[in-house]
Amino acid sequence: MTVMTEELKPAMQGYIPAVLATCSKDGEPNATIVSQVVWVDDEHVALSFQFFNKTIRNVRENPYASVLITHPSTLECWSLDLRYDHSETEGPLFDAMDMQLQAIASMTGMADVFKLKASDVYFVEAVTHRGRYFEPLPEGGS
């Protein structure tokens, strides 16, 4: 079942940071910014695992997550309902994400801070269009 379409790809370039929601098994939500949301195939994305330990702990005990991504030109937003699948600490996906993360770190002055520990691969259960980050003001005011 294909749930992701090509129109989502620009929203995964990292131009506008994505935000990830997870939840502990006890029902405590957590929100954090993620540096990378990478298209793996039509049904999977990979997120960079750097240092957000609470997020990692949450998805290991409750595999569901939701990530909000934003198209950098149109400001259209989508939420992706995710289910944690597995982590990769070597191989082509990890190497590509590591290289991209170093580029992001260099551009944002975070070269000494960002270090990829793993590429966490999630199954995409659903994609929901969430309108635009900002909605146009109506004619004549707000």
Binding site: V19, A21, C23, G27, Y64, S66
Partner: peptide, 16 residues
């Protein structure tokens, strides 16, 4: 800012 919450099955969701 973003806000995360969850439903009665502990599935998270998010709003701007």
């Amino acid at each position: 800012t973003t806000i995360a919450t969850r439903d009665d099955k502990n599935r998270p969701s998010m709003c701007l």
